[in-house]
Design a binder for these strands. Structure first.
Length: 286
DNA sequence: AAAAGCGGCAACCGCAAAGGT
DNA sequence: TACCTTTGCGGTTGCCGCTTT
């Protein structure tokens, strides 16, 4: 796609002349952008913005498309499995949101970043420790992640029998950096397998992690329930998550604020049981 | 019922890297 | 190879809706 040269200079000049829109996108703008991309495909964003008749910067169009309008985006709450992935991958890569997002099909870096900032950092704050502290990281590694795994397993156990029977549609192998253990998620989906197979190519290859792959189908018209915990069969040996040091944590940590606010359906990062568990761990170590 | 506070998220900003001329 | 444009990324901001007082 070679749209540049003269046309681009022209569009820049026009951008200077006409006032560029900023702020929230209107339905009309969304339609213009979607229709243009569906017709012409993605290209260079500045000319695209101009050609689509949008008074927006190319940058703004790109962001709107990638974070909101793309048809392969998943909407809805971050699932337990996705939370697990985010925790694992963040412990490995830190704030490399786009890299993390590559392993969560249909999720954007912006979404993951927002999730981390609003949920995880909030919880770190409530625990009165820094999100980057060893204390917090180890709490995640040895306590929260195993609890998430347990909850996923529990969800799987509570699900209907067809789950186990059909849990072979795909696999999601997650080696974590903790002693070389691998977390293996087998999942099933209500989508038919041909759909799943046909969309596998949308998952970016992972060049820097030879032992890591994500083989997750992405539906063209994503179903919010696609990854529901009840559909997940989980196989994992998580004993290695148990803290090697039983007296590691700061006795002064206060779980109560988190406990008070955590037992809601929407905030499933940890529930009340998790907190009781954590408190027991801390009390035991005191 | 109204005001204040808070949380979630879309969008913007600045910078750096990549690519083209 | 220097310059310019575009793209991609992470950090930050501000709006909006929900909850609490």
């Amino acid at each position: 796609m070679d749209v540049k040269a003269k046309g681009n200079v022209q569009s820049d000049q026009e951008d200077d002349q006409m006032e560029l829109r900023r702020g929230p996108w209107t339905v009309e703008e969304d339609l213009k952008l979607v229709n243009y991309i569906l017709t012409h495909g993605e290209g260079r964003w500045n000319p695209l913005a101009h050609d689509a008749g949008l008074k927006r910067t190319g940058k703004s169009c790109r962001l709107r498309w990638l974070n909101y309008l793309r048809p392969d985006l998943r909407r809805g709450n971050i699932t337990l499995e996705e939370q697990l992935m985010i925790l694992e991958l963040h412990s490995r890569w830190g704030n490399r949101w786009s890299k993390i997002a590559q392993h969560l099909p249909g999720r954007t870096d912006n979404e993951i970043k927002n999730y981390w900032r609003t949920r995880v950092q909030k919880h770190a704050k409530q625990l009165k420790c820094d999100v980057n502290s060893k204390q917090f990281r180890d709490a995640m590694r040895y306590q929260w992640i195993p609890r998430l795994v347990e909850r996923i397993q529990a969800s799987a156990a509570n699900s209907t029998t067809n789950t186990a029977a059909s849990a072979t549609a795909g696999q999601f192998v997650m080696p974590h950096g903790f002693g070389g253990e691998r977390v293996t998620l087998s999942y099933s989906t209500t989508e038919n397998s041909s759909t799943a197979a046909s969309s596998e190519t949308q998952v970016s290859p992972v060049s820097d992690l030879s032992d890591y792959y994500v083989n997750v189908p992405v539906n063209d018209n994503p179903n919010p329930d696609y990854f529901q915990a009840s559909q997940i069969g989980y196989s994992h040996r998580y004993s290695s998550f148990i803290s090697p040091s039983t007296n590691y944590y700061n006795n002064g940590m206060d779980f109560q604020p988190w406990l008070d606010g955590a037992d809601t359906a929407s905030d499933n990062f940890l529930n009340t049981d998790d907190f009781l568990f954590l408190q027991q761990q801390f009390n035991f170590n005191m």
